[in-house]
Design a binder for these strands. Structure first.
Lengths: 185, 185
DNA sequence: CGCTTCATGTAAAAAGTTACATGATTCA
DNA sequence: TGAATCATGTAACTTTTTACATGAAGCG
């Protein structure tokens, strides 16, 4: 389990409410760990019960009050313990790959349009990552020199960028392969 | 949900027992969809109940009997329906990325050994994929010309190879970054 | 005799998804 | 007035993981 740990990291980077965490899981931390607000609220409650985080009521003008969570010393040591555990092998779930192999028993050409749409999503994701990189790390407003946390965030983002570039190149290969299986290929 | 569909694809490629499917999910289909035997047996039961597959008792010499499953016409059309559904956006779960960002609040250098071990796992995976590619697609024993199913299997495998190469390059970047954060960097 | 492979499962717990629900404020 | 955003949750369901369980055959 790592949602708790992803939340710990996010709250250490900056304390925030469940709602704010849900936003962050749509971008930033969400680029490599997804979670919905329902999950987040449930886990926050458990983490508070375990003493990993504590909440502070924050009054806001023109907005409902929020509970701002911060990581306690206990939470920090829980994170540290988890960081020292061996990295679990990833469990792969690649739906598109299943579909491609399944296409052998259906119509391969019919998949092309879907793969093209999927490719566009990834192109947008890459554009978003690159914009974030310019904004936070390589642009004129980026901090120089970056601190350790920023360098680590940057290397993670570079991983996302490399993943998207690789994916786009592979999807071109897939589309090409599907085309060549068509009636005129 | 796609475990059912991954099983349909695998059984269409070749009928087999729950046990044999579990083996395939350790290699081949397992390179892009993981599942344990417990999951597989449960889903097979449901799929049989839904009439997607049917079982044939196969007696074996010197081994327990097995149930060999095959895809029914109903199963084939269920797969076809699923293939025509839009591809769901992937939900990312990248534990290592969380750990890297978490390292900012712990000891970044302590992560290096773990990342190096992780890197070795991926190097082995790449070697396995490349061996499979030579055996099935590019070596002297590979079928020429390949049929549609083989071409589709090959493009999926190329995706796996591209993923592992990208990952290895990124892990080198990670290790380098962690080193530079060390006391002498 | 003990280890590995073949073969099939059950049970409980943890995690994740989907649907439903409420209520305030801001902006067009 | 209606839609969007902020803010927080509950409930039901599905999926996944982990642990437990059994039994036969082959190998060294």
């Amino acid at each position: 389990m790592a949602l708790e740990h992803a939340i710990l990291v996010s709250l250490l980077e900056k304390p925030g409410s469940g709602y704010e965490l849900a936003r962050r899981f749509e971008r930033s931390i969400g680029y490599f760990w997804t979670a919905t607000h329902q999950q987040i609220y449930r886990v926050l409650k458990r983490m508070e019960g375990d003493g990993w985080i504590d909440a502070r009521e924050v009054e806001q003008q023109a907005r409902p009050d929020k509970k701002e969570y911060s990581v306690t010393a206990l939470g920090r040591s829980a994170l540290s313990a988890w960081l020292h555990e061996p990295i679990a092998p990833e469990s792969v779930r690649h739906e598109l790959a299943v579909k491609i192999r399944g296409a052998a028993f259906d119509d391969p050409v019919a998949l092309i349009r879907e793969v093209e749409r999927y490719r566009e999503e990834h192109a947008e994701r890459l554009a978003r990552y690159l914009a974030g990189e310019r904004r936070d790390f390589t642009g004129p407003d980026a901090p120089a020199p970056p601190d350790a946390g920023q360098q680590l965030q940057h290397v993670v983002l570079r991983g996302g960028i490399a993943y998207e570039r690789m994916t786009l190149a592979w999807l071109d290969d897939v589309i090409d392969t599907l085309h060549r299986l068509g009636p005129q290929g």
